[in-house]
Nucleic acid binder design. Structure first.
Lengths: 405, 405
DNA sequence: CGTTCTTAATCTAAGTCGTGAAGTAAGGAG
DNA sequence: CTCCTTACTTCACGACTTAGATTAAGAACG
């Protein structure tokens, strides 16, 4: 939308080519021309630029039907590097990726006993980032930036300055400026909600790949959602779109949610709610995590009627919530993940899809598929690293030669 | 996204300028340059082109601070004309608009007793269009196209051909190819759902104007919704996005909807459902339309406890459904219309907003306003006419001169 | 071993476009 | 009548893409 000059034009074509390369991993000039709707000549020019910049390289060739062999093109993995951080309830994980999204290194800092203090998280994050940078001093020159996935809504701050601010209500944090939370000297910083980061990872490289309209639901202790319309993640007016967990399904009559209201989706399908319902049937399980949920699912699978009923009700509510999304957004793909989702859904994917179909209108109901997240919860860092990658792709050519002269 | 050549560039800049002109009605070259982020020189070039094409004209000037006066620019209303049709349950209305969206003429055909036959609607539509064209033969050369708002989902058809097809399940019609339904020789035809058309009208010229994230709810016999993300109407994978009416709120426990399911929003907030609830309290009203609803609202206002309770419950469910949208999409504006909405909401707008705020999360809940549709239900034709207008704006320059030589 | 054929990639000439700088139009003030 | 201010236009320039010509690089074949 901001293409005004012929220069922008070249920049945009460069972006198109680079983006296609990132998504396909390997291509040829001809394919690139077709995919980007550019002429062969332009592709040659752009690709040469990219090769000059050390971002792309030719990796051998394949024979053509009797003519000059086709040169295979790929990203030069070492051409750029990104840092991605997952700031979660359990701690801070920072990972280093190259241009091919290979994870080169990782640094983890466990969260202190209470996560109620953003300052501690902040130093842990700064520590981890510094450690990685010290371990790889040679990559400083190709380091694009640091993407951070945070446990809350990231939106423009209050007032006129409007600096990006984290609103992590569920952790009991006061609104915190992202700049205060994340200090990485000399590094461009990007921040977003962790669930959004994961959704973007699924959209680029995972189960939502190539979809133009999709929803990515993350079922865990809380319920997150990434909404994709027209190939792009929907952020809403001020960044908080995708708050699915406190969608009301019970019309004021459901169980009480930790947000204080009644009938929230999370109060039916959140991990705590599921296990609480199981306990209410007399089950002795007292845990709250993966192990407890696995016990529930195993019991249901083994024929325990009470456990089966709990799972059934969970699926029923989930299907209702999904059907509402299907009606509202007409997605072509529903992607489910999160540790609860990945434990609960795989064996019941078809049944869930059937229920969603029954609860939604005929047309949209016949146009979606349910997939499972390819990335698990610990890939927030990868998703976060896609923010600097996106920036790298969008960035106009940096002419280092000019400076040398 | 399809800007590849320098020519596309000019085309796109022309579109930007034209679009801005349509939205602002009147501007100056300097303002245009600022709004479109173009240089003054480019604006001059593009505007000259548009003036040559008879689409734009200078309309006098305003004095500047001591210098050359500023030329005022406006669309030349007679530069292009569009037809918009509203195909509804009551009949077919076709309207003729000029480039300034003045309605120049109108033709109405009442629906035959049973609307169960698409063929009759089809001939009525063709008749009305033909009548208008015969009455204005001089406008043929500037007639851009015909936009049709239809009572159902318009999406790509089944199979490989994928011609646009109307799915009007609620009218009991079998899927009908739009081309079969709308025949207008020599005229480009555009079709969409009527509610979508109205939402676009609100987005361009009405209460949703300028919003980048908004929802437009139409409350009538059925419940429609237009979802706007990033300034564009969301259509979903296959065109059926915005089916809000059969969103489930009651978790299987609510009243039975005409779609057969339980707990649909429409079964609480649809006109029939509201009046039915009133009748259940012993009210003697037997109507189903505007008059009956007005009686209900008047009774509630007059202190009738039963009527007030019915209205209250309606508002409550509506607020819940809206709060879910607020959480999910973080809109900056909620626009409500439809004959039920326009009767029910105006006097209770603040109360409704309060309820929505209480039922949604703090952040998104504090970021929206509720507005009323500026266009009433009979403006579907106007919204429909915006489809050819859009096409006209997006269309590259038509060089008639070249053909003359 | 050379010729011819095929396909891929590159080069070239031509044509477009937007921009900044410089120039022109149009009015007001003195 | 001159100067000043502001709005718009023109012009020279550089940047871009493209169609079509050309070269690169191998395969088939005699």
């Amino acid at each position: 939308m901001t293409v005004a000059t012929t220069r922008d034009l070249r920049q945009q074509n460069r972006t198109k080519v680079l983006r296609t390369l990132v998504l396909s991993g390997e291509t040829t000039r001809a394919t690139l021309a077709a995919d980007c709707e550019l002429s062969a000549a332009t592709v040659t020019n752009v690709v040469n630029e990219l090769i000059d910049d050390g971002v792309v390289e030719e990796i051998g060739s394949v024979p053509s039907d009797g003519g000059r062999p086709i040169a295979r093109l790929a990203l030069r993995a070492a051409g750029a590097h990104m840092l991605g951080a997952d700031v979660g309830e359990r701690g801070v994980a920072v990972e280093l990726f190259d241009l091919s999204m290979n994870r080169l290194d990782r640094e983890f800092r466990e969260a202190p006993a209470s996560t109620a203090d953003p300052a501690q998280i902040s130093t842990a994050l700064a520590d981890a980032v510094a450690a990685l940078r010290e371990r790889h001093p040679d990559l400083e020159s190709t380091l694009v930036g640091l993407g951070v996935g945070l446990p809350g809504v990231v939106g423009p701050g209050h007032g006129s300055a409007a600096v990006p601010t984290l609103y992590a209500q569920s952790l009991g944090w006061a609104p915190t400026s992202v700049a205060d939370l994340v200090s990485a000297p000399g590094l461009e910083v990007f921040a977003d909600n962790g669930a959004n980061a994961l959704a973007v990872a699924e959209l680029w490289f995972g189960a939502a790949r190539g979809a133009s309209d999709a929803v990515v639901g993350l079922l865990g202790r809380g319920i997150g959602l990434g909404v994709v319309c027209d190939g792009r993640l929907v952020r809403g007016a001020l960044g908080s779109a995708g708050e699915w967990g406190h969608t009301k399904l019970g019309l004021g009559n459901g169980p009480v949610c930790r947000c204080g209201a009644r009938g929230c989706l999370e109060a039916y399908v959140g991990a705590h709610a599921i296990l609480e319902r199981w306990r209410a049937t007399g089950a002795s399980e007292t845990g709250e995590g993966w192990r407890a949920l696995s016990a529930l699912v195993a019991a249901a699978d083994a024929g325990d009627a009470a456990a089966a009923a709990v799972v059934d009700e969970t699926l029923d509510v989930l299907a209702t919530a999904l059907a509402n999304l299907v009606n509202l957004l007409n997605p072509e793909r529903i992607v489910l993940g999160g540790w609860v989702g990945l434990r609960l859904v795989p064996a019941r994917r078809e049944e869930l899809a059937d229920r969603v179909r029954r609860l939604s209108l005929d047309r949209p109901g016949s146009q979606f598929t349910i997939e499972l997240c390819r990335f698990e919860g610990d890939s927030v860092a990868l998703g976060a690293a896609l923010m600097p990658l996106q920036a790298f792709i969008d960035r106009p050519r940096v002419r280092e030669r000019a400076a040398v002269r």
